[in-house]
Computed example of a mutant assay.
Amino acid sequence: MIADNWALKMKTTPENFERMASLPTTTRDGLVTMRARALEGKREDLVAIADRVLRERFPLQAGKERSQRQGRTPTEVRCRDRCASFTTGKDAYTWIINEFCRIDPNALATYARYYPKQKYFSRTLAGLFEGMSRDGSRSSDYVVLANGWYAATYHGHQQKFEVMSSLSGICRLDYEKDWTFQVSNATRELLEEQRRLVEFQRSLDAILAELQRT
């Protein structure tokens, strides 16, 4: 069914496309195919829906991420010609997000528009924890960024890396070339997950670049 060109027909509505993309029987590969066919049909609205559903249904995580583990995570970060070292992943994450926002002041607003259901950033503390069991009473669950936005920090490394990759795409920054996030003593599994996510983000960036040329 995915192989058919129904998704390219102009009468295909965004609602029907999203309904098909959200079906439990639609696999990740199937959703990627739907997105590619929408791109071929120059249906930018459908491409945006496929991107959002793909992020929501198939987030890259490492086994539910046992992110609550204790101990420090020494991390080295770089953004263009600026480098820094931190004893915790939380501080390194905060630094790189601030750097992205320095490069593109609208990065977080754009992210929030692309992924409205994800609670990673908000202009208000109440908005960051809206509809969640957490209420923001623990200061360790969030930080206030340099631009005044609030950022959740209780997520695991893989979720944070996914957010960083998405933001870097918005800022048009390439991992390794423009920025890096290196955790000391990272496991092979962690490095492999990061590599997969970087490749996935690059494929999204290529699609967006092609859309902008059409």
Score class of each variant (00 low, 15 high):
113 R>L: 01
79 C>L: 02
159 Q>E: 09
183 V>T: 05
68 Q>P: 05
13 T>H: 08
167 L>A: 04
151 A>N: 12
117 K>R: 11
203 S>N: 12
192 E>M: 04
104 D>I: 08
192 E>T: 05
102 R>W: 05
34 M>V: 07
167 L>W: 12
13 T>L: 11
148 G>N: 07
12 T>F: 01
207 I>W: 10
23 L>Q: 13
7 A>Q: 15
18 E>V: 13
85 S>T: 12
158 Q>A: 15
95 W>N: 00
73 T>Y: 09
30 G>L: 13
74 P>G: 01
32 V>M: 14
92 A>P: 08
195 R>S: 02
9 K>E: 14
99 E>G: 00
185 N>P: 05
170 I>G: 07
90 K>S: 14
84 A>M: 06
73 T>S: 06
55 R>I: 00
34 M>L: 15
19 R>P: 07
85 S>Q: 13
143 V>H: 00
52 R>W: 13
159 Q>M: 10
79 C>A: 00
34 M>Q: 13
192 E>S: 10
95 W>D: 00
142 Y>P: 10
31 L>I: 13
136 G>P: 10
100 F>A: 02
179 W>I: 00
116 P>H: 03
161 F>I: 00
66 R>C: 01
134 R>L: 10
168 S>E: 10
103 I>G: 01
50 A>L: 03
211 L>E: 12
139 S>W: 02
35 R>Y: 09
69 R>L: 09
155 H>P: 08
18 E>L: 15
62 A>R: 13
147 N>K: 06
100 F>R: 03
38 A>H: 00
33 T>N: 14
141 D>R: 06
110 T>Q: 04
184 S>N: 14
195 R>H: 03
68 Q>A: 03
